[in-house]
Nucleic acid binder design. Structure first.
Lengths: 117, 117
DNA sequence: CATATATTTCAATGATTATTGAAATAACTC
DNA sequence: GAGTTATTTCAATAATCATTGAAATATATG
């Protein structure tokens, strides 16, 4: 990932409504959600929402497909994960402990025990 | 982490120079780097750099301490990791495969990948 | 104290961005 | 085709942001 792509993605996410939209799509998963459903869930005007979807799409963070009258938007997980990887790249010059690993957290909690030092 | 905090952090990172600064500090690790060293490395005017450091600091992404004449800036890894966690929260309703885990990558040799698919 | 170094503050300027309201397009149903 | 639903386009307005140059502050050294 290039710096400019990361800036574009971050800028797309750096807005309250768009961050809400994106996180909703992340939670919805690969099947996505209709624009109208998102508009209702987040109480956004449809034209405002289109504006924000466009930004997310230009940044490569979402895809769209038509289904009848509805437009279905979905998060691009590959892009999200590239972005996260870009931010943590070469962190701490290898001292991974300082820079704790981040994983995609499923809904249910699952913890593994660490042996005490 | 609250939505507003995440927006602040993302906005701080959504700027070419600041993203460069932050990534440099992430790579530098917890000891941080002097402002002047960052300025030289990234070829930024000192006042411009101060402006950007302020944004990063307001967003909680870096800390600063004085050492003689120098100001030493360091990334706040805790904040970075909260942000990454916030973005991936409840992703895919638990279908972790779709939403590949991201880990903090230690330093290793650069590798060009992807021969045309 | 005088001078050099490191960084910050301040004011001005140009550039980008989000929201709105009204109108347009696209698809479905009768 | 008329009417309805879902979404997009367009133009205008208001708000925020990055960079610059000049001057100020803080620390170190002779």
């Amino acid at each position: 990932m290039k710096n400019a792509d990361a800036v574009a993605a971050l800028a797309a996410l750096a807005q309250e409504n768009r961050l809400d939209v994106f996180r909703l799509l992340v939670q919805a998963g690969p099947d996505g959600m209709a624009a109208g459903v998102v508009a209702t869930a987040l109480k956004l005007a449809p034209n405002t929402l289109t504006f924000h979807f466009d930004r997310l799409r230009d940044a490569g963070l979402v895809t769209v497909r038509r289904d009848g009258r509805s437009m279905i938007y979905a998060a691009r997980f590959e892009a999200m994960n590239s972005l996260l990887g870009f931010l943590t790249e070469n962190c701490c010059q290898g001292a991974v402990e300082t820079c704790a690993p981040v994983t995609c957290k499923p809904v249910r909690k699952k913890r593994e025990k660490e042996p005490a030092p």
